[in-house]
Amino acid sequence: MGLAAEQEFEPIILALACNWCSYTGADLAGISRCQYPANVRIIRVMCSGMVHPNLVIDALTKGADGVVMCGCHPGDCHYQDGNLKAARRAEAITLMLQDFGIEEERFKLAWVSASEGPQFAKLMTEFTDQIKRLGPSPYKS
């Protein structure tokens, strides 16, 4: 990788977004034309509580530079409390990142409601900036 390429580091960022709030919030960001970096790839899940930690760890150990998991605000979960379970798993994931030799800043759990389009864009912008500052994932050859 040349010097120019290093300067132009464009991270791959995955966002796992729950169908009911966060994915809707991401759509609202679009409807409201809130701009954010094009590095983010959103994967729709029905609930943040359906995301197996392996999915996150796998992504981060196979080339993703950052992963953000988005769910409904506490109390808003379409499935009662899937988001709270996701939060507990996220805590475990954060702990395990150490074990995998990955900076914990590469993973983030965030609550985004269906009406928080601008907030979604802001979150993605800030997270992308953060990852850009961190540089490429240690798992990238």
Partner: peptide, 24 residues
């Protein structure tokens, strides 16, 4: 990935993952 699988399962049933000593 036994650690990830177990940590996920344990945190779901309400165990504070920080309680687990020397995870790896």
């Amino acid at each position: 990935n036994p650690m990830v699988d177990m940590m996920g399962a344990l945190s779901t049933i309400g165990l504070d993952p920080k309680q687990i000593p020397d995870r790896a």
